[in-house]
Design a protein around this nucleic acid. Sequence first.
RNA 1: GCGGAAGUGGCGUAAUUGGUAGCCGCACCAGACUUAGGAUCUGGCGCCGCGAGGCGUGGGGGUUCGAGUCCCUUCUUCCGCACCA
Length: 943
Amino acid sequence: MDYQFKDIEQKWQKFWADHQTFKAEDKSTKPKYYVLDMFPYPSGAGLHVGHPLGYIASDIFARYKRLKGFNVLHPMGYDSFGLPAEQYAIQTGQPPALTTDTNIATYRRQLDLLGFSFDWSREVRTSSPDYYKWTQWIFMQLFNSWYDKAANKARTINELAEHFEKNGSAGINADCDDDVLSFTAGEWQALSFEQRQTELLKYRLTYLRESTVNWCPALGTVLANDEVKDGFSERGGFPVEQKKMMQWSMRITAYADRLLTGLDTIDWPEPLKEMQRNWIGKSVGASVKFQIAEPAKAALAAKGMDELIEVFTTRVDTIFGATFLVLAPEHELVSALTTAEQKKTVEKYISQTQKKSELERMAEAKVVSGAFTGSYAINPVNGEKIEIWIADYVLAGYGTGAVMAVPSGDQRDYLFAKQYKLPIIPIIDIQKIDEQADPTKDGRYINSGFINGMTYKEATATLIARLEETGAGKAKVNYRMRDAIFGRQRYWGEPVPVYFKDGLPYLLAESELPLILPEVDKYLPTESGEPPLARAKDWKYKPALEPGELYDYELSTMPGWAGSSWYWYRYMDAHNDRKFASKEAIDYWKDVDLYIGGSEHATGHLLYSRFWNKFLRDMDLAPEEEPFKKLINQGMIQGRSNLVYRLIDELGRGTNTFVSFGLRNKYHTSPLHVDVNIVENDVLDIKKFKAWRPEFENAEFILENGKYVCGFEIEKMSKRYYNVVNPDDIASRYGADTLRMYEMFLGPLEQSKPWNTNGIEGVFKFLRKFWKLFHDEKLNFNVSADAPSKAELKALHKIIRKVEEDVERFSFNTSVSSFMIAVNELTDLKCNKKAILQDLVVVLSPYAPHICEELWTVLGNEAGTLSYQPYPVFNPAYLVEDEYAYPISVNGKTRMNLNISLSLEEEDIKAFVLANPAVQKYLDNKPERKVIVVRGRIVNIVV
RNA sequence: GCGGAAGUGGCGUAAUUGGUAGCCGCACCAGACUUAGGAUCUGGCGCCGCGAGGCGUGGGGGUUCGAGUCCCUUCUUCCGCACCA
């Protein structure tokens, strides 16, 4: 029989599904191995050939690990809450639950087509109530917890309340809001229930607080920092503005340091770790309080506001050079500090900066501007009165939104001082500040009071000690990362399991989970601007203990990353209705051994997942500090677009004539994208082109060599470039095994590379050639039981070793070429020995599972047993050579090869080579100066 | 501006430890077979040169008997961050 990939692939896909071949064992004596893919958002467009790249790699790895005797967990599911389904619902009125189900069905069909060894019995969908019940449950645990900095872990809020009850706020070192109160046990006991709840909310790991958020009017929702790119929403590209709103947040900053140090313990790509480090943005320095000078001080006091400005600095040693303070225009003290004379100037400046978009602010990075408030502050180390300015180079969102300006050491401060004629004081003896600031740390301090003459280290230590003594400051670590906003004013997400009573949030009872997402008539905000959930009829909390009472539910839903921040645990025990996963399951599977996915999740999903994992560990719900031991980013598969060149007439109008690629420069043309599916090897199928769109029906062509050659361009794979290649089409034409191997053959997994269907023939031919090893010329099955020859064993054992090495280092592309070499060699040897082919089938099976299952049974083995065969054992004895064709080079240039026995010693090799007349010819009668002999490698003669 | 990754034939790539640069495949060229075909098989295929030979891993320099690989320098592309105090 010929290689009938269609029948074979259907047959085995059905077999695997019917027999649950890849169901992972919950208990096993085998070692565990957890191979995870980042689960997809099921979009309406379905998969293109770029999407499965990582899934193919992980599948090969999972199948390989099964052969190596591991109990492999290799699950798949869907991150099925998200904006696109909701946008579609707004446009069409179709419920997102419905379109999501349809999309999932498409994804499943496409995934099945590729022969993945997923354990589908563990499938999860984040939008399913059985699943989001536990997302809500974890939210509740976070709400019920606070971060104890002393213990460096999260603890339950009850422990905190007990402490307050007994000892008041003394002795608590928490990561919490800035405005927490100090109180004694008695004072706490005297507080009302509501007052206590208000206070506790400031400590909870998920909390409600008025904060500045990224508001996207077009999407009608707030966005997290990682969902905003350059002032626009990542999804849709809509403008984003800053707005103050009451919002749910997650206190991820409590974990900043653990998130940072944990990076050193995991095997992730360095660039990805670096991105997370930058995102966390740790800087070590000091916070310093500058008292405000009269008369503004009295004015502030009258208003009950702080009479000081707190700044953060990484260079506290330069404080004697601080000649003014700069506040962000949004700083809360600005209006109170502005004097009557300066009011106009300041207000004008503020309105100017507000008008500027984020982008403009960045574009004008080198231009400084600002305004004087008219008020002064006192430098705490020398009592100097210095001016307080506002400027937009100071960011409200970083540090305290205020800086001490040291123009001699900081370039922005320097430019600002020059522009507004503010004093610049050199503070280090070797500083050169004639043209620009000099941030040096070398040299000795001058003009710096009690630190004069000290070095950087001494000065910093002395200053911090002095500041702490006088209460004017302290050493401080600052993080760029902010707490993550955790609410979205959208419909298609997890409802927050919270109701409101007297303006305070309370959790539902655990027994009331899941809080089901209610139906609504429309997916838009209400007229009064409330989120879509406000439209749900009769959706009120009716507590069992207070019959007749009705309370409002929280109306925002959870963000897209909620469901994906713990899903790898659900796969361990996907149907548990008592726990998010049983302790036994979690203790067995522990963590993800290999995680494959795109680098676009670097600062979103991967950071939030690490955060939730650390929290779950603090709660003794998870055993490991880090959830993903090894992570690989698969590269993007780019599209390869094809272009045709439309002839432009004298009047500049497009004609219906198209010029072939090579001739396009002889005419006036304009390029036009053409569907890659009607182009082969860059040659346009003219017939199909005419049928492609009605306006091309009568198209004419200027050909070269009788062909129309298209140009090409590498760009994103996208409908608008007509360069989308669908895996269904490829699989139906060449089969899944060919597609799997070709995707791997394209190049290193981590590298981005363009998809070009052209090369796929080579892989297809390879599989046919492999098939033919088992068959005679008439394609009848024909395998011999004879003992294999030395050459055949050598070919086999080369590939056994090569695949082992390649898979372990995720170099799948090199295995594919090695398979080709092995099959070429065996074909040349006319090898049809069962002893060879049977092992080869096992070795190839992770890459091309269908054809291998088929041949495995044809060889007489029990159907379906291939997936759990032991991987063949490499025997180096078969690779031992007794001769080697030494390359002989003269002065580093290879001149010839000489066959020399590998048993010869270096001296004998040298003599043998020099005795060779052909070698002597190259030496040209010159005496050799030196002969380098590396046994088994090379001989180099220096003359 | 800062940080990271990468530059090898017409194309995708290989070279695992400093040891024959271009494996494997596509495309292309020539040939065989043939119901002339988007099938199969054989051979060729880095560049220049008829050849001997020379040149060749983005450019320049260095270390070494020997460099795609190590060092310095420079250019280009991609990715991330970007007034971070």
